[in-house]
Design a protein around this nucleic acid. Structure first.
Length: 604
DNA sequence: AGTAAATGCGCG
DNA sequence: AAAGCGCGCATTTACT
């Protein structure tokens, strides 16, 4: 813990102050690094949320600082000083949440983030503590000086008192610019501490390098955006809303209650003689799709009709309001620019919001059809990793039989699950369409997620005895799977007892902790987290192949991209190579490529 | 009135 | 001995 005694906060609002700032910038300092931050706001009268979007809001302050001194520069009046300073400065630049700053500079300035010498203390914090909040305020209280939060509180009170927002507070209001300037100092203090764990030769060096490279690429994807067919989206939205409204009214007219209220729906169904057998986590009678589907099999004709209508209504509502509505409201000139957290999940997976492009329905093409290439000269191509988690699991388990079956499948171009099925059932004629393949997948993914045989049977929709037989056969044929799981859990338990926390380290050295009462989840974390890092490494390879400008969106183990119409086939081959990993694993981590497509939905 | 929790459902 | 992992979004209901 350090403290903030003696720090200096400055405001650039004159030629003299500007000269002092430029002179200060030339001084020597630890790491020769500076921190950069921005304050942004909505345009007066516009929605508050605009303050966070470089396409809707405006830059208000840009701040530069080191461990002891911070400068706030009002953007409208003194941007020139910032450009001059950045023209001279060639040392490391540290930000807290660099993606935010980089987007604003990209959209609203003629300065671009020099990623090759840039750092992010939020990424460092999330690697060091995957479960902690990355918020600067909290990190400052924990690592630097709890008093720093007070300045923020003063500012919050002043904003309220004066009726100001982030868009209307005067840039020369001292608590505002001082708060901004202090953030650079706090960022640099965090950097000093975190560098001890993330810098070259330190435990998290490889993980940090991978994350910074990923952040650069993914930020470019956010800026690229995804082109939306607005006419189609509007037409579908209108159709679907018209349908849902009509059905809801029918429910009211027929049953005098709302079929979109689950409580009321359960009452209606029971009134018709239905028996509810499913329950929610809190013990209430459930109106889930599974329950309703069961009623469609067992119920009276009237129950069946209602069940059918409810499921159709839910589907239409989901498509209209979760997808098409957001495409229409979120787009900027026909492109949606999603927000991607590159360390969104505790395992190191990414998560995407506004809109949630990782959750588009894949059962049919209705929603994905709305995603177009960026212009007429391009087409869409996509590339998916092949069973990446299972392949990593096989590789880590070092089970020779499992590994050789993957190699056999790859050599003959067949399906790994089918090869395993032939082995398990002793039936070399088994085909991919065989129903028993589902049980094989159930056992594999059940184990990857830590499910018991009962749950595996439930998911696969077969009797438990049948699933247990398959599971037992797995243990006999591939004993390495269970022994690997046991080993991971044993290490986790030992660490929990010795260090107070169970955890695994992925292949880059990243540390992934579990909840104390769920040590069994570590197997999944190791696989899921390791696969996320493999995928991120593939993004780096795509970047090194100069394909970043074509990238659209990452979906866990899939990348979607534009390809020049005339060179789609060459690009497919290049992408396939970048998405394939053969070094470092006993089973090749292969990838498939699809396209050329006129829209994302053509694949479905 | 605004926030949180519960519920349900979309994805890998 | 047994344990389904990780997310985001919309709506309804419960609570302050």
């Amino acid at each position: 813990m350090t403290n903030l005694d003696g720090v200096q906060l400055n405001f650039v609002n004159s030629v003299q102050e500007a000269e002092k700032f430029i002179s200060w910038l030339g001084e020597r300092r630890p790491h020769d690094a500076i921190a950069i931050d921005t304050e942004t706001g909505e345009f007066p009268g516009r929605p508050r949320n605009d303050a966070l979007s470089p396409w809707h809001g405006r830059l208000r302050l840009v701040q530069v600082g080191d461990g002891m001194t911070g400068w706030s520069i009002p953007w409208d009046e003194w941007a020139g000083v910032f450009y001059e300073a950045m023209g001279k400065f060639d040392g490391p630049i540290v930000c807290h949440n660099i993606a935010f700053e980089a987007r604003w500079f990209d959209v609203q300035s003629r300065w671009d983030m020099p990623w090759h010498r840039a750092h992010d203390t939020m990424i460092m914090a999330q690697i060091i503590d995957p479960l902690g909040s990355g918020a600067l305020k909290r990190l400052t209280s924990q690592y630097i000086d709890p008093r720093a939060a007070q300045l923020q509180s003063v500012l919050d009170e002043e904003l309220t008192k004066n009726g100001w927002t982030w868009g209307t507070v005067p840039t020369n209001f001292e608590p505002y610019w001082a708060y901004g300037a202090l953030d650079t100092i706090l960022t640099m203090r965090l950097f000093d501490q975190f560098w001890e764990k993330c810098g070259p030769g330190k435990p998290y060096a490889q993980a940090y390098e991978l994350e910074m490279a990923t952040r650069k690429i993914v930020t470019r994807m956010e800026l690229n955006g995804a082109r939306i067919d607005l006419d189609y989206s509007q037409k579908k939205y209108d159709e679907l809303v018209e349908y849902t409204e009509r059905v809801k009214q029918w429910g009211k007219d027929t049953y005098g209650a709302s079929i979109t209220s689950n409580i009321q729906l359960v009452k209606i169904l029971e009134g018709l003689g239905a028996e509810i057998t499913e329950f929610t986590p809190s013990g209430q009678k459930s109106a889930s799709a599974d329950q309703i589907k069961a009623l469609m099999i067992n119920g009276t004709p009237e129950i069946q009709q209602l069940a059918d209508v409810v499921l159709k209504q839910r589907k239409a509502d989901k498509l209209a309001n979760t997808y098409f509505k957001n495409f229409l409201t979120d787009n900027v000139n026909g492109f949606v620019h999603p927000s991607v957290k590159t360390l969104g999940a505790r395992t190191g997976r990414m998560s995407i919001t506004a809109p949630a492009l990782q959750t588009l329905p894949k059962g049919d093409s209705t929603v994905r059809r709305a995603f177009l290439p960026k212009d007429d000269d391009h087409v869409i191509i996509t590339s998916d990793l092949d069973q990446v988690e299972f392949r990593m699991f096989a590789s880590l388990s070092q089970d020779p039989n499992l590994i050789s079956l993957f190699n056999l499948a790859d050599a003959t171009g067949s399906d790994p699950f089918t090869e395993i099925g032939r082995e398990i059932y002793g039936d070399p004629t088994m085909q991919k369409s065989d129903k028993r393949r589902g049980l094989i997948k159930g056992v594999v993914y059940g184990r990857l997620y830590g499910a018991g045989v009962a749950k595996q049977a439930l998911t696969a929709g077969v009797p438990e005895d049948q699933m247990r037989a398959v599971s037992d056969a797995f243990d006999i044929r591939f004993p390495g799977m269970t022994s690997f799981q046991k080993q991971v859990e044993d290490v986790g338990m030992r660490r929990l007892r010795a260090e107070g926390e169970g955890y695994v380290n992925t292949w880059t050295g990243r540390r992934l902790p579990c909840d104390n009462d769920r040590v069994y989840t570590l197997v999944n974390y190791l696989i899921q987290g390791g696969a996320a890092e493999v995928f991120k490494s593939n993004l780096v390879k795509l970047d090194q192949a100069d394909l970043t400008e074509y990238l659209i969106v990452p979906v866990h183990d899939e990348i979607v991209l534009n390809a020049p119409r005339e060179h789609a086939e060459e690009m497919k081959e290049l992408v396939r190579q970048c998405m394939t990993t053969t070094e470092g694993w006993s089973v090749p981590l292969t990838a498939d490529v699809d396209g050329p497509l006129e829209n994302w939905g053509e694949k479905y």
